[in-house]
Computed example of a mutant assay.
Amino acid sequence: MSETFAVVLAAGKGTRMKSDLPKVLHKVCGKPMVEHVIDQLKHLSIDEIVTVVGHQSERIQEQLGSTVDYAYQAEQLGTAHAVKMSHEQLGHREGSTLIITGDTPLISSGTLADCLELHQETNAAATILTMQPDDPEGYGRIIRNEQGQVERIVEEKDASEQERAVNEVNSGIFCFDNQLLFEALDLVSTDNEQGEYYLPDVIEVLQRKGERISAARMPEVEEGLGINDRTQLAKAEKMLQKRIIEFHMENGVTIIDPFSTYIGADVTIGIDTVIEPRTHLRGKTKIGTNCIIGPDVDLENYEAADRTKVKNFSRTNDISSLPYVN
Rank of each mutant, 00 (worst) to 15 (best):
Val50Gln: 06
Val50Leu: 10
Thr51Asn: 01
Val53Ala: 00
Val53Trp: 01
His55Met: 05
Arg59Pro: 00
Arg59Thr: 09
Ile60Trp: 04
Gln61Ala: 13
Gln61Leu: 09
Glu62Cys: 11
Glu62Trp: 05
Glu62Asn: 14
Gln63Thr: 12
Gly65Thr: 03
Thr67Tyr: 07
Val68Thr: 04
Val68Ser: 05
Asp69Gly: 09
Tyr72Ile: 08
Tyr72Leu: 12
Gln73Ser: 15
Ala74Met: 10
Ala74Val: 14
Leu77Arg: 14
Gly78Glu: 10
Ala80Pro: 14
Ala80Ser: 12
Ala80Thr: 08
Ala80Trp: 15
Val83Lys: 04
Val83Phe: 01
Lys84Pro: 02
Met85Thr: 15
Met85Asn: 13
Met85Arg: 14
His87Gln: 09
His92Asn: 15
His92Trp: 02
Glu94Phe: 02
Glu94Met: 06
Gly95Ala: 03
Gly95Lys: 05
Gly95Cys: 02
Leu98Asn: 01
Leu98His: 00
Leu98Ala: 03
Leu98Thr: 02
Thr101Leu: 09
Gly102Glu: 02
Asp103Leu: 09
Thr104Leu: 09
Leu106Met: 07
Ile107Pro: 07
Ser109Thr: 14
Gly110Asp: 15
Gly110Met: 08
Gly110Glu: 13
Leu112Pro: 01
Ala113Ser: 15
Asp114Ser: 14
Asp114Leu: 06
Asp114Trp: 04
Cys115Gln: 11
Cys115Pro: 00
Cys115Phe: 01
Leu116Cys: 02
Leu118Tyr: 04
Leu118Gln: 14
Glu121Lys: 09
Thr122Asp: 08
Thr122Phe: 03
Ala126His: 00
Ala126Ser: 04
Ala126Gln: 00
Thr127Gly: 01
Thr127Gln: 01
Thr130Ile: 04
Thr130Phe: 03
Met131Ile: 03
Met131Asn: 02
Met131Arg: 02
Gln132Trp: 02
Asp135Lys: 10
Asp135Asn: 15
Pro136Ile: 05
Pro136Cys: 06
Glu137Thr: 15
Gly138Thr: 13
Tyr139Ser: 05
Tyr139Thr: 06
Gly140Ile: 13
Ile142Arg: 09
Glu146Gly: 15
Glu146Cys: 14
Gln147Tyr: 11
Gln149Glu: 12
Val150Phe: 10
Glu151Val: 05
Glu151Ile: 09
Ile153His: 06
Glu156Met: 12
Lys157Val: 13
Ala159Ile: 00
Ala159Leu: 08
Glu161Leu: 10
Glu163Asn: 11
Arg164Ala: 07
Val166Thr: 12
Glu168Cys: 10
Asn170Asp: 13
Asn170Lys: 05
Asn170Pro: 01
Ser171Ala: 14
Gly172Trp: 06
Gly172Phe: 07
Ile173Thr: 11
Ile173Val: 15
Ile173Phe: 00
Cys175Pro: 00
Cys175Ser: 14
Cys175Asn: 11
Cys175Lys: 13
